[in-house]
Design a protein around this nucleic acid. Structure first.
Lengths: 190, 190
DNA sequence: ATTGAAAAAGGACATTTGTCCCAACGGCAA
DNA sequence: TTGCCGTTGGGACAAATGTCCTTTTTCAAT
């Protein structure tokens, strides 16, 4: 659930250090609560998280939200939008303070067309995301909330990630009320 | 829902025609019902669909199935498994007769490391899949079955794709009984 | 210490979805 | 034709989840 990508982080960090003009890749800080990407709006930069944690989520027309994943160090943002030439697919909001490498879009396009190593890093990242997203879609759909909650808690444990109940329910795709019920019924474990 | 990829198809077709030894890329036919990939088993070849339609689905421990997508011409199979060095993530079963280009795994690995154009084709394919999968996970989770059924029928219409009720329910992640109920309630549209 | 706002917990009832059956229909092999 | 089997459709009841509200708790700003 909390994705990170050390290899990708080092690759971009290296690009940043190499760069003469400090122009195509710059560091930008962000505050907890800040929106790094806004659903349906054009992307301005490709970003790679240096530090901090963000959540990636859809806002649906019925006012509900669905969290796709939590993104930490080395995760890249708005690369899909640049590749497909579309507006932002979903929102990305900081849940802690942090910073990113902000990469200009033309530069990123050039990298895609020339940097084979970057291509491979992207392929790996996409493969991991696809696996995660598809697996989760399947079991969240096919198992009751209680079962999925157990899985979520195990993940939070191993990854030492603390999130609000509201985010937990948005991650599970259920209402807060249902989350509380599920927590209740398996209260024996607490 | 029925994914295809003309550009990828042409790229691999071209590789096949170029190839001297007809060894690293071969054509293989398949029959309706045949399993091209079996969940949790090692992948033997990377395949790219030449003709025919397949379904990509998870078999969960509780005996339920979830269809991730339907794959047609130009869609690639088991590339994720080769990239990540893992067993098959899910099942791929033919729902019509057809054929694939079967690519040897070492050759595919070599392509990934050397063929920038192929890398870009893969990036595009992955980006499309991610968008599809994530969007669907979100709205299937956050809207009632009836709403999702309406969407599914519209897709089936525009893509002229006919699938059994059982596959429809597996795609929606609901039981056959629930599908029938949903069909009933919006019977006015038929 | 006081207060206000956000987060957390849960009661009561409605709706949705699942489970377990059984019935009807159509194709197809004996 | 007969009988079997897979697909489709649906009744009756149980379980899961959502909706709408209210209460409690927490915690930071005053």
């Amino acid at each position: 659930m909390l994705r990170t990508n050390k290899a990708f982080f080092h690759h971009i960090e290296h690009l940043y250090n190499e760069e003469k003009l400090k122009q195509d890749v710059v560091i930008r800080n962000f505050r907890k609560g800040e929106l790094l990407l806004e659903q349906d709006q054009p992307a301005k930069k490709v970003m790679l998280i240096r530090e901090g944690i963000t959540k990636c989520y859809f806002s649906e027309a019925n006012d509900k939200e669905y969290i796709v994943e939590f993104l930490g160090q080395g995760e890249i943002l708005s690369e899909i939008e640049v590749i497909r030439n579309t507006n932002c697919l979903c929102n990305i909001q900081a849940i802690t303070d942090g910073s990113v490498f902000a990469i200009s879009i033309p530069y990123f396009r050039k990298l895609i067309q020339t940097d084979l190593q970057l291509n491979n890093l992207l392929l790996n990242e996409f493969a991991e995301r696809l696996v995660n997203t598809a697996k989760r879609a399947s079991y969240q759909q096919l198992y009751p909330a209680e079962h999925n909650l157990a899985k979520l808690r195990a993940l939070m444990e191993t990854q030492k990630l603390q999130i609000s109940k509201e985010d937990m329910s948005a991650y599970l795709g259920i209402t807060l009320r249902s989350l509380n019920r599920a927590l209740k019924s398996k209260l024996f474990q607490d």
